[in-house]
């Protein structure tokens, strides 16, 4: 018994130290110009809920590429449809994640994807649909989402083989914490054709700053 108490005492001392030893990455990604707002086709909806569709600011996903252990549990996250738009418009997830697609509008949506990483068609589903329509994403890659009813709706899920990823803010700033020390490739995904990358050396407890300026 006294030996176990001693072990716990030392563990309590060491674990915070280990946590502190994890590395942090921060920096800024230079984002492209804002995209134009979508135009909603209302030709044959003579009574339609009017509104100005907000412009989604371009964002980037920054992630640490490497060989990381698989998650023991199935992560679950949500990508909602609200005001005839995907929220968020871009969702990064880890492979094996289950994504629910709740409909928060008063009308049907019909989400589908023809992307090689995941082909699916959820069919038409109501706002109060139970269970909430969902899909599990097992293959890394970009999944482009559309709605069969609302042509202007566009969304994307970026499926990544890493647990270490983060979305930038609208100014392009990012911060990744709790990273294991070592040599990795840090990538900044801006769109399906633009991924910038840098090799980084992460040290215990250190914070490394990495910026992704516009490519030459």
């Amino acid at each position: 018994m006294p030996r176990r108490a001693v072990s716990l005492f030392f563990a309590a001392l060491i674990l915070p130290a280990l946590a502190l030893a994890q590395a942090t990455l921060e920096g800024r990604v230079t984002l492209p110009k804002a995209i134009t707002a979508p135009v909603v086709n209302q030709r044959y909806e003579i009574v339609s809920k009017a509104g100005v569709v907000a412009t989604n600011p371009p964002l980037a996903v920054v992630f640490l590429a490497g060989d990381f252990p698989k998650s023991a549990t199935v992560p679950v996250t949500r990508l909602v449809q609200k005001d005839l738009a995907f929220v968020p418009a871009l969702l990064p997830i880890r492979t094996g994640t289950k994504v629910e697609f709740p409909n928060l509008d008063e009308q049907f949506h019909n989400i589908f994807s023809y992307s090689p990483a995941k082909r699916f068609d959820l069919g038409r589903y109501r706002p109060d649909e139970k269970p909430v329509p969902s899909q599990t994403f097992d293959v890394a890659g970009l999944v482009t989402l559309r709605c069969d009813i609302h042509e202007h709706m566009r969304g994307a899920i970026l499926v990544l083989d890493t647990p270490h990823f983060v979305m930038t803010d609208a100014a392009g700033n990012f911060r990744l914490t709790g990273l294991p020390p070592g040599r990795y490739t840090l990538k900044a995904w801006l769109d399906s054709k633009t991924t910038r990358e840098r090799v980084v050396e992460l040290r215990d407890g250190a914070t490394l700053r990495v910026d992704f300026p516009v490519s030459p």
């Binding site: 995209i35 134009t36 707002a37 979508p38 135009v39 569709v53 412009t55």
Partner: peptide, 26 residues
């Protein structure tokens, strides 16, 4: 590719900075 149509859509869409005016040809 899908990007071709995305670029075409962007080229056929005009919008004011505050999205008050928007127009799209399709």
């Amino acid at each position: 590719t899908g990007e071709f149509f995305e670029r075409l859509e962007s080229a056929l869409t005009v919008s004011s900075a505050d999205a008050f005016f928007r127009a799209r040809a399709s």
